[in-house]
Design a binder for these strands. Structure first.
Lengths: 218, 218
DNA sequence: ACAAATATTTAGTTTTGTCTAAAAATTAAT
DNA sequence: ATTAATTTTTAGACAAAACTAAATATTTGT
């Protein structure tokens, strides 16, 4: 597999959001920041190699082999992201470009050793699940903090309200993107929540909870 | 810099063994496992980019900029080797191919963080020195264990006698390639040595010492 | 159902890095 | 010092991956 082939496989995979649907040439072109004609060329090549199903004018989907390949790439990408954040103190938003390069390194032993070194993490710093060596993994969904049941844990991945006062509040309460959050309890009368965030227990109002996105894996 | 350009720069660097000498097209071709005509093409391109000095029929040498580039690559390669051995439990001889890939990853922050994470190592698992960020580094030389003065430390990198009995002896005494060795004392009457190897102090005969290579940095 | 709009493919180029075969320069040998 | 051997370069071609422009399918709107 060439670097470019791998990038296409990943793009097709991500367009399907994990489900193996058929995606259009144009969609792939946009995702890859390339021209539709280039996609047609590459997709033909991938079809010949057995990585995708392709019928002219009818779009592309991954074959089983293609899906396996995509999951391996996703696994590598996310493990490297964990490494960068946990071991090299990269921040949440600095990891992507480097992981994008690292995911193309070819060595099964490398990735298995890395997995072990990191303690077999289940999710990456964005809360997305890491496929196992065999390609099994749970799906992640994004929900507002107020919508999840008590006992749910996940990773804070975004805000609905990005106004300065809200962001200032988060900063003051040491809530940052990438933090893991556990919902401890909910007060019935006002919908406020008791949560545990990075080993601190805090109490937040319902207004706050309705503006924070949590990524959870079922 | 493309991947291929980087490989050529490294090849030219290694052919000069660190000193910046002029090397022949054919030598580069052999090192790179490619054809001389391909080398000519690439060398012209590198010359245009200011990385090498090139006069047709007269060979190539690195410019100052080329040397700096080569040292950065060497630094990256060796830091990754340390990482693979120290953190991921790769053995001495498994690291090269993977490091060869990892050295092409582009991120200054990555390599500086890695350096810090590894505790700013001075030498790689083969005993070769790691250039500093600015490109400074000491040279390594290979010597027989019996030839170095008391107090010298280095890394065991090879054997002169590779007969089974000798290798068996090394095994029994837990002396392996990649081990760091410190010469503690020398007995005058028989030339035998007291050495410290991986926190064990042992006594070895002169015959043993004359068959073990040590890599030392002055 | 047909024309217009949109999506996709084909055909023909370009760039990068490689190759082979032939030509030219350098080095070695008598 | 001239020829022979070797090294190096040039010229022309090829494969991969991209592009542009033109042609062809498909979808949409009336």
């Amino acid at each position: 597999m060439t670097l470019s082939e791998e990038d296409y496989i990943k793009a097709i995979y991500h367009l399907g959001k994990g489900d193996n649907v058929t995606v259009s040439t144009n969609a792939v072109a946009e995702q890859m920041e390339t021209k539709p004609s280039s996609v047609t060329d590459m997709v033909k090549k991938l079809a010949e190699k057995g990585l995708v199903n392709y019928k002219p004018y009818k779009g592309v989907s991954l074959t089983e082999y293609g899906q396996k390949t995509a999951l391996t790439l996703v696994r590598k990408h996310r493990l490297w992201e964990v490494f960068l954040v946990e071991k090299l103190d990269f921040s949440w938003d600095e990891v992507h470009d480097v992981a994008e390069q690292l995911e193309h390194i070819k060595s099964e032993k490398l990735i298995d050793s890395l997995d072990k070194h990191l303690g077999f993490p289940q999710v990456d710093p964005h809360g997305d699940p890491i496929p196992s060596k065999k390609g099994e993994f749970k799906k992640a969904i994004k929900k507002l903090l107020n919508e999840v049941p008590i006992g749910t844990s996940g990773i804070c991945v975004g805000v609905k309200d990005s106004s300065p006062p809200f962001l200032k509040f988060l900063d003051k309460n040491k809530i940052a993107l990438g933090d893991s959050i556990l919902v401890l309890d909910k007060e019935e009368f006002d919908g406020s929540l008791h949560i545990q965030i990075k080993n601190n227990k805090i109490h937040i109002s319902s207004q706050i909870a309705t503006n924070l996105y949590l990524k959870i894996t079922e």
